[in-house]
Amino acid sequence: MEVDKGKGEAEETRKVAEADRDTVTLKSSDGKLFEVSKEAAARLSTVLAGMIAGGSIDDNGTDLKQIGSEALENVVDYCNKHANSIPSAALISSSISFNTAPFKEPEEWERKFVDRLSHDALFDLVEAANFLGMERLLDVTCHKISEMMKGKSPDQIREVFNIKNDYTKEELEEIRQELAWAFYDD
């Protein structure tokens, strides 16, 4: 009885200690551990916010089996950088004019953050952002990928996205003739 009580207390103490920590530990699909600011994780990811609020964060590393270590490292890096950044006047004003602005433009540091990534890393990151419900990171990564597609021909886009062309030559020619204006600068 005494032992059980001791165990219960120890468990309680561990939970309190965990709740007091200002970071959470996340574990990638390949078993690597990453520390991230609890405040930033809860603010930037709806999924992590739900896990923190629901007490399903594991002190020894919360399993994120769908996310590889490279993508998780980028997610954590983004959260930590975001925690330290002060929103610029441009971001604040664009949030005010949300109804007229298509999407919030990425901040300068966010641009630099995604510019250094390889195609594969960027595509992994956009999926991780989607999985974790990170709206802002999803916005930044999707914006970057749409910029990568700018001015590219269908062939070049297929190459970047690794997509097989399922049109016949005749089908393509017919559409190109019908919408010739879209191909002037090919």
Partner: peptide
């Protein structure tokens, strides 16, 4: 969705990537 609406040619090209 993030393609600029003032550049409709970009969406036409994307539609020709695959069905």
């Amino acid at each position: 969705l993030r393609f600029p609406p003032a550049e409709p040619a970009s969406l036409v090209r994307a539609a020709l990537v695959c069905k």
